[in-house]
Design a protein around this nucleic acid. Structure first.
Length: 494
RNA sequence: GGGCCGUUAGCUCAGUUGGCAGAGCAUCUGACUUUUAAUCAGGCGGUCCUGGGUUCGAGUCCCAGACGGCUCACCA
């Protein structure tokens, strides 16, 4: 796509030509920095007295963010990945020809500068530049210096401009990166093995969601982009790894909202000989220690509330939660018909096509989820919504499953994994029945997975954590797009 | 998909009852050798999201559409 060359770009192209004809290459190949901006600032501040008697020379490089001409001197703000430092150019330090090229350096250009550190009258650490090198000429103007880039659409479509002009945004993504590192550290220290499993799959299983479909040309068949990591990680448990995890991209062909992006990042971990009670401890330990590592505290501000991740978290049986927040005991309505009748009597809204499990899910998301601001484990789920979880001992309709809620959002989902291949096959059969009844989100039979399980799968505790939502909590963002660098957008045709 | 809101200079935003398209920053010219949202003087810069309609006249009113935000629904 070509862009019209507007006046501002033309002016910069003219400067670029002027630099070239003065023998300056506007896009050279490298530059040796001696200090980052922050290192240079710290050097100046830690040697205030010595600066007067001794030369501290530095080479810094970065983007010019501001330029203030003052007659025969020029000040610039230079920013690199670490922060900002001020540059000071005075005519005395240059030939007239060289000083004239300073006017061809624009805001937005990438510049290398060499010189000695000093403090200005107001105490600002500054490099008195003795030589400078243009490292890349910018041909487009930067957003407004004071308000930054505000237009949300432009912020997402041209995220680099957002990152350049909005330091808070940059911080969010630094926090995201630190969060993921901290998760890896936590799991690696506990002897979990990080693995990678296929994104392209012949069947998309392990969750209830519509998949994306793609096509392999050589094999001439369709593949699905994975909607979960689960079934392959369990195959690895069967294969003999005691503890595995994967942090990977998941794709779900569903609606886009403030809490949903079509591609998002999921952590799944599986630990042999653990049950869901063990996994609860793992989750509260993991999230609280990640928060501690990222923020230096186990508390965060989220959406006007203080959330405290300090273990232990509240544990709330799902049946009790529904009784407490919706005033309904679903155990008294053991089939779809009786539950529907009761919900109708209570004037609750629901989708009449739904089966009992989905109806309970609807009640939970309407009445319970929004109430769970402080970290809470909701546990013991109806079997209908959990075809991969193991039944509670002595129960034929409750499974050992929990979800962790925080700030009204689901952040984790875990269960004692079903490892009985006969039961697993029956659960898949039940899902297939639901699918034939019109539930196109019901899971498909995965014979290859059942075959794996028939070889013997140890008792295992499994866990999934939505990384994007966890990062939202840790960065006080209420939209998932603010924690995904390039969120899904429609194609812009202009 | 429904509802509400938004789209005006490169950026941030004004724009009154329908009557000549505005400001700040950026940019350009000039002044200024410790400024820092530098300051001062002057200049350039517009498909008012797109397409229709009403009107003597539309940035402004009406209809349709595009894109975005919020929200409800869907969806873990």
């Amino acid at each position: 796509m070509s862009h019209p060359i507007d006046e501002l770009t033309q002016q910069k192209l003219n400067k670029l030509a002027a630099l070239r004809s003065a023998g300056i290459e506007p896009f050279p190949y490298g530059y040796h920095r001696s200090h980052t901006a922050v290192e240079a600032v710290n050097t100046a501040q830690n040697n205030k007295d010595a600066l007067l008697t001794q030369e501290f020379r530095v080479n810094v490089a970065g983007r010019i963010m501001a330029k203030r001409g003052m007659g025969k001197t020029v000040f610039m703000d230079l920013r690199d990945g670490s922060g900002k430092i001020q540059l000071f150019f005075r005519i005395n330090n240059f030939s007239e020809a060289k000083f004239n090229t300073v006017k061809d350096i624009d805001i937005g250009d990438i510049l290398g500068a060499q010189g000695k550190l000093f403090l200005t009258r107001s105490g600002e650490p500054t490099v008195e530049v003795s030589d400078f090198t243009l490292l890349a000429k910018s041909l487009q103007p930067l957003p407004e210096k004071w308000h930054g880039l505000v237009d949300v659409e432009k912020r997402y479509r041209q995220r680099y401009l957002d990152l350049i002009s909005n330091p808070d945004v940059k911080k969010i993504f630094e926090t995201r990166s630190k969060t993921i590192s901290a998760i890896r550290d936590f799991l690696n220290k506990r002897d979990f093995l990080e693995v990678e499993t296929p994104v392209l799959q012949p069947e998309a299983g392990g969750a209830t969601a519509r998949p994306f479909i793609t096509h392999h040309n050589t094999l001439d068949r369709d593949f699905f982009l994975r909607i979960a990591l689960e079934l392959h990680l369990k195959r690895l448990i069967i294969g003999g790894f005691d503890k595995v995890y994967e942090i990977g991209r998941i794709f779900r062909n569903e609606g886009i909202s403030v809490k949903h992006n079509p591609e998002f990042t999921m952590l799944e971990s599986y630990e042999t000989y653990a049950d869901y009670q063990d996994v609860m401890k793992t989750v509260e330990d993991l999230v609280s220690s990640v928060c501690q590592q990222v923020h230096g505290s186990m508390k965060v501000e989220y959406n006007g509330q203080t959330i405290d991740f300090t273990p232990p978290w509240r544990r709330l049986e799902m049946r009790q939660a529904v009784m407490q927040y919706a005033g309904l005991d679903y155990e008294q309505f053991p089939d779809t018909a009786s539950l529907k009748a009761e919900m109708t009597a209570r004037k609750m809204q629901f989708d009449p096509m739904r089966e009992r499990g989905k109806l309970i899910d609807e009640i939970v998301s309407t009445y319970v989820d929004p109430q769970l601001i402080q970290p809470t484990f909701l546990y013991d789920y109806p079997i209908e919504m959990s075809p991969l979880a193991k039944k509670k001992p002595g129960s034929d309709h409750i499974v050992e499953r929990f979800e962790a809620y925080c700030g009204g959002m689901e952040i984790a989902n875990a269960f004692t994994e079903l490892n009985d291949p006969i039961d697993q096959r029956q659960r898949f059969m039940k899902q297939m029945e639901d699918r034939e009844k019109g539930d196109d989100e019901a899971q498909k039979m995965d014979e290859d997975f059942v075959l794996a399980m028939e070889h013997g799968m140890p008792p295992t505790g499994g866990l999934g954590i939505g990384i994007d939502r966890l990062v939202m909590l840790l960065t006080n963002q209420t939209s998932i797009r603010e924690v995904i660098l390039f969120p899904a957008q429609r194609e812009k045709i202009d």
